[in-house]
């Protein structure tokens, strides 16, 4: 009996690795044409689906002029109403170019979605982290039981809301408020990042509260017994004690923020344009993939896979880094 259990648990554990490696290999194979074509320049190239004369193709200037299509967003409304129109860059409307010079090729570069992904995630984390910590401290240490219990349940419910609902709410209610406050576009890096932050907030708060609650009473009591104030106990005892759980919650939240598609798709503007300001619209990797897979083929499709591979590596890298860096001194 024990042997069977051992076998089952061993094979389920190895299954995780098989899946992980399998996904990596699939992504790598599918993106092979794009990798061969663009190499690592893909990461620093801001041109997506752009026609260039053959000889220019290899020298990817880092700061390329913004796509022609970007000029389309003369007014916000247009973006709000049919952002699909902005996205048909991957459609083949390049006849104009072809007439001028038949010696052209299409260039794909991932810089814009990569930057978009990293920036939205960074904004989300910067926004959510302090608030989540505040909520967790309040629930675990400050609020009396008859308040912390219902608020805790509400927060767990918030964490269960599907992301598309956050996206719609963000677009119709939250984005106009943010745009009023800071100006700029309603769909932008900032609004996408903030809504993403609101999404990961309950999640972080709930896990952080749970790990703070594992601090033994007697440990807190010994600090109070030395004359520590509540603030000192929270800062010097509870935070260090629950560090592992807090970092775990950040890692999970990071993973979710990096890969989030629906909510960001509503809010980021979905245009291939390098943001010049925090309230400029742009695009993220998952959104670029979700919006373009339908009509992509050939090198375009392969480039999307390349983006997916990069997202995979970023998520993996960020999470491993966080684990190694923050947890190495924890035990």
């Amino acid at each position: 009996m024990e042997k069977i259990f051992q076998k089952i648990s061993l094979s389920s554990a190895s299954l995780v690795f098989v899946i992980l490696i399998g996904i990596f290999i699939t992504l790598f194979n599918a993106s092979k044409p794009a990798i061969d074509e663009f190499g690592f320049n893909f990461i620093t190239d801001a041109r997506w689906n752009e026609e260039v004369p053959l000889d220019d193709a290899k020298k990817a200037p880092a700061s390329v002029e913004i796509n022609l299509d970007d000029m389309d967003f003369a007014s916000n409304d247009e973006i709000l109403l049919d952002d699909d129109m902005l996205l048909d860059e991957s459609g083949d409307d390049d006849i104009l170019f072809d007439e001028e010079d038949s010696q052209t090729k299409t260039v794909y570069g991932g810089l814009i979605p990569i930057v978009g992904t990293l920036l939205t995630t960074a904004i989300a984390l910067a926004f959510a982290l302090p608030i989540a910590m505040g909520i967790a401290v309040f629930l675990a240490e400050i609020a009396p039981k008859n308040i912390s219990h219902p608020v805790g349940i509400a927060i767990e419910l918030l964490a269960a809301i599907p992301s598309i609902i956050f996206g719609m709410w963000g677009l119709y209610y939250f984005a106009p408020i943010v745009a009023d406050l800071v100006g700029g576009y309603q769909v932008s890096l900032l609004t996408a990042g903030l809504v993403l932050g609101i999404m990961i907030l309950p999640f972080m708060a709930a896990i952080t509260r749970d790990s703070m609650n594992t601090t033994p009473d007697v440990l807190k009591e010994s600090a109070y017994a030395m004359g520590a104030t509540k603030f000192e106990v929270i800062k010097d005892i509870i935070f260090p004690y629950s560090k592992v759980g807090i970092i775990g919650s950040i890692i999970l939240a990071l993973g979710r923020a990096l890969g989030e598609t629906m909510a960001v798709a509503f809010l980021i503007g979905s245009i291939f344009s390098l943001p010049q300001a925090i309230n400029d619209p742009t695009i993220s990797i998952p959104v670029a993939m979700a919006n373009n897979f339908g009509e992509a083929s050939g090198l375009g499709e392969s480039s999307l896979f390349y983006l997916a591979l990069i997202l995979f590596v970023i998520s993996f890298g960020v999470i491993s880094f966080a684990k190694l860096y923050f947890l190495k001194g924890a035990k």
Binding site: P216, V218, L219, E221, S222, A223, D236, I237, P240, Y241, K243
Partner: peptide, 9 residues
């Protein structure tokens, strides 16, 4: 206290 309570530092 009954159980030793070293702080996490």
């Amino acid at each position: 206290f009954q159980k030793p309570t070293p702080f996490p530092m």
